[in-house]
Design a protein around this nucleic acid. Structure first.
Lengths: 325, 325
DNA sequence: CGCCTTTATGAAATCGATTTCATATACAAG
DNA sequence: CTTGTATATGAAATCGATTTCATAAAGGCG
């Protein structure tokens, strides 16, 4: 702080103007060999590092992007974030991560913050409750991940999503093929993913001529406060022998119930895969989403958009993989 | 980008100087009621948001901190980061997360980047290979977490750590009390934590009059490429009946080996606790670190330091909790 | 009514870079 | 020796805010 070395001091040291110092960094071909040397000596001597702040100010680019997700504690998002960060770092970008906890107000605040900081773009797993993103971000590029954007601006933006319906279909289909006779579901109604996963669930039942009973479906709240209760209710009143969980958080809560009530016989399927599923006593069927890949793809999409703001909107759907245990 | 509304336009709209607009935001008591109203109308009308960049430039504070950890994919660090972010958000700070993958060069680059961006401070889980942090960060406040700083600058900085030795001691002690007759260990030699955890392991053995055999100890590399191999080797050649794992990543790899080789009888203990340990067929003994708390404490320590740069260095050690299953 | 203090405001400097425009020197061609 | 063209450099404007300093108007007091 006190010791911040500026371009001015380098100029002074080398006996040249600030413009020349700047040129040494940005267009050295315009500067004579000897001057370059003098300036570089000064930079080494004084340990000069240009202020990224001042550069951003002048250049109108911060080399920073925002990532707005619901929660880094969810390993799906963590992996996704890591994918983004690795890609970003390679291209000299920094990443600011924001957790919305599925709270639209928080999402709003974070987006404002990112706009204020002039992030070059935002990658967003939307809570889905903002009608008008465009007015919020003011031409800043936005890439939607994981959840479909909603509202009238929806088709203005690039997306990188997974095929929730198909993934869920496959998982439930596998449950039934493994002999399940009554499959229940717990999904989170947050954003678009819950609905789509439920559609897959329904279609799989139908494909096997199973009746669709609404009491076989429970809608979880995001925070998971009542998941255990809901699960227990399904299990006890419906006597189901298989449960489809809409995400890894739900599965975790279901496992708690099973353990607590010592329920040994239950077929489980879940959207999203985690390494530790291998070690659980139940043979968990899971839909593996390429979270890391979604991250890198989203970043690349964002870069493309920055390079070419007027190119047509892209909608990328990445493939899921069914894991049967 | 194109539409960025500046203070100038508000000034124009309200027919006042830029200084006055700025005062409306920062010292409204100096401005007359009517003028405030005019200016605020302008802000609403044009949807003005001050450029955080320009403010940072002028105020020499970015309201941004850096968090440098080895890997967000490690749930311990994720939880820690979440603790930091929640605390930071409450105080209006943004967080930039950086993954070093235990690579000192990456650490170096990220710290440089944060210095360039004039972060207000850094929270750092050091790889431990930098002799001279002070020359790198140039008076920027630094809080070390998880790992002890090393080198000659070590005692210049605030720390928030856990008692690795005691935690490990308790875990190994518990293994033995559960009947283990030969306990082996796999730890990561990265940073200071590995050594400390190993010390705890040794002391526990000694306390029970167990001999300490060096072939009972394996040093893992961080990336975990050879963990499985090492584990298998310990198990097969030493015929151990209990394994102490230095962190959750190591445990995961050990579980893979046990599963692959269908080894059912193995007592396990691990430093760090994860929710899913509850569902694994082995009754895992774990040392629960309050990761979230470490995060919030680190952030608060950083804020204290910023508020009072000359206050004495603090060394906070948070308590671990033994979880026996 | 003249002087002094408050109150309200603006002009200009500043933060640390980049870039445009002007200028000075060196060298080549006529 | 003059003119023209590269080549190398600096002065000043700029990015969008904040703050100091100066000043003008308004109000209080003897």
């Amino acid at each position: 702080m006190s010791k911040q070395v500026t371009i001015k001091q380098i100029a002074q040291y080398a006996g040249v103007s600030e413009a020349t110092v700047s040129r040494v960094l940005n267009q050295p071909e315009l500067v004579s060999k000897q001057t370059i040397q003098k300036v570089k000596d000064g930079m080494d001597e004084l340990q000069y590092r240009p202020s990224a702040l001042a550069q951003s100010m002048r250049n109108h680019t911060t080399k920073t992007i925002g990532v707005v997700i619901s929660n880094v504690l969810n390993p799906f998002f963590t992996t996704l974030v890591r994918g983004i960060e690795d890609a970003a770092t390679k291209r000299g970008y920094s990443v600011i991560v924001c957790n919305t906890d599925e709270n639209p107000d928080k999402e709003q605040r974070y987006i404002n913050m990112l706009v204020d900081h002039q992030a070059d773009g935002i990658i967003l797993a939307s809570t889905g409750n903002h009608a008008n993103y465009h007015s919020m971000v003011n031409d800043m590029p936005l890439v939607f991940i994981d959840r479909m954007p909603q509202g009238k601006d929806a088709n203005l933006y690039d997306t990188v999503l997974v095929d929730n319906e198909k993934g869920s279909f496959n998982a439930v289909d596998a449950l039934i093929k493994q002999g399940a006779t009554r499959v229940n579901a717990i999904v989170s109604p947050v954003a678009t993913t819950g609905t789509e996963r439920l559609n897959g669930f329904r279609k799989a039942l139908t494909a096997h001529d199973f009746p669709i009973r609404e009491q076989d479906i429970a809608l979880d709240d995001y925070l998971g406060k009542h998941t255990a209760e809901l699960a227990l209710n399904l299990i006890q009143t419906n006597q189901c022998d298989a449960l489809f969980c809409g995400n890894n958080v739900i599965l975790m809560n279901v496992l708690k119930v099973l353990k607590e009530w010592q329920i040994e016989d239950m077929k489980l399927a879940v959207f999203d895969d985690q390494p530790w599923f291998d070690f659980v006593q139940y043979p968990i069927i899971s839909v593996d989403q390429p979270a890391y890949l979604i991250g890198t793809k989203a970043f690349i999409t964002l870069m493309d958009r920055l390079a070419n703001p007027d190119r047509p909107v892209t909608h990328d759907i990445v493939r899921t993989k069914l894991v049967i245990r």
